[in-house]
């Protein structure tokens, strides 16, 4: 790949120490790279550690949790050792965020326009007022808010959920970030609104050339926007590759199961594949492969219960899998998605 690396995460672990001093790893040895202008999707069930991974990258971990290992390099600069002041300057400038609930980013008692203006001013404090107002209007127009001058003067509660998310995207794009981190930005929205928001995100990225890390559990969305995919399970990345190979040649039984459990037109009226059971709690992960209790790969062996599989090239260097029997998954994937 020739595009330069923007963000590189290596061996990142996040967690806490329990009462006995033992480490509980909620995110365990996660690594990936995001190239300039490209889209990486973090995919997995709720609780798999997607949000914590990106919170650690941004230095926004909730209280009580800490980074237990790893490095995070943004344009070669280590974010984990960066002083809070400099990190804050980076956030909202080169790094921007959009969350599932737009109200986490909006102040309910301030006019929407004023909040976007603040984002514009945050990193260019001396911009003249008229110029800021013009920029706010421009941003709102870019994210498809009708009557931007008028709407900018109203409060968040007067906006619908979809419109609020547009406002948050406008704020995020205010300083033309190089990397946009979107954590389930459309999960709370209806499909038609979701489609609009995804279009807005695509347009905003097209004008700014920003790369994006999209956190989602919706494989439909992933198929539509991703360049690269990381599938997470129980705090680890279990499969990593381009969108083209992961969807067509799943190299991990979990990915195959997820694809198989999609309810689609072709399978209407018949039984979809269902992964049995549910993911283990972070404190009760089995010693070997965390997926072993649910894995139905015919080739699974004793090794699965004893040795933890590491992420290794499966098909070629761009497609990796953390399964001892990655070479036997294609057949299984075909069977469950048939």
């Amino acid at each position: 790949m020739t595009t330069p690396v923007l963000l590189r995460v290596d061996d990142l672990s996040v967690g806490y120490r329990d009462a006995d001093g033992a480490e509980v790893r909620l995110v365990d040895g996660v690594g990936f790279t995001v190239h300039e202008g490209r889209v990486l999707c973090l995919v997995g069930e709720s609780g798999s550690g997607k949000s914590l991974t990106m919170a650690a990258v941004l230095g926004l971990l909730p209280e009580g949790l800490e980074v237990l290992s790893g490095t995070v390099r943004f344009r070669g600069q280590d974010l984990l050792t960066l002083p809070e002041r400099e990190l804050r300057a980076l956030r909202g400038n080169e790094l921007a965020m959009v969350f599932q609930d737009p109200m986490t980013a909006l102040n309910p008692v301030k006019r929407v326009g004023a909040q976007i203006a603040r984002a514009v001013r945050a990193h260019h404090p001396r911009t003249p007022r008229a110029q800021v107002l013009a920029r706010v209007e421009e941003l709102l127009t870019e994210v498809g808010v009708p009557d931007p001058a008028e709407r900018a003067r109203s409060y968040p509660h007067q906006w619908s959920g979809g419109m609020r998310q547009r406002a948050v995207i406008a704020m995020a794009m205010a300083n033309r970030p190089a990397l946009l981190i979107a954590d389930e930005p459309t999960t709370a929205l209806d499909v038609t609104i979701q489609a609009q928001i995804m279009d807005v995100l695509a347009d905003a990225r097209a004008t700014s050339g920003a790369a994006m890390v999209l956190i989602t559990h919706d494989l439909g969305l992933v198929a539509q926007v991703a360049d690269e995919i990381c599938i997470m399970y129980a705090g680890r990345i279990v499969e990593r590759g381009t969108v083209w190979t992961v969807f067509d040649e799943a190299r991990h039984p979990y990915t195959a199961g997820l694809l198989g459990s999609l309810l689609s037109a072709e399978r209407a009226g018949s039984r979809a594949y269902a992964i049995p059971g549910s993911p283990p709690a972070p404190t009760r992960r089995p010693p070997g492969c965390a997926f072993a209790t649910r894995c139905e790969l015919p080739a699974r062996s004793e090794l699965c219960g004893t040795t933890r599989p590491e992420l290794r090239p499966a098909a070629d260097v761009t497609h990796e899998s953390a399964c001892h029997h990655a070479d036997r998954t294609l057949e299984f994937a075909r069977a469950v998605t048939a």
Binding site: T192, Q194, G220, A223, A226
Partner: peptide
């Protein structure tokens, strides 16, 4: 029709501009 058009299809080869 607009509802149906909004469902993202879980196949990357069906997206616009896909190889």
């Amino acid at each position: 029709a607009s509802l149906l058009a909004s469902i993202p299809h879980p196949d990357p080869y069906l997206r616009p501009g896909a190889p």
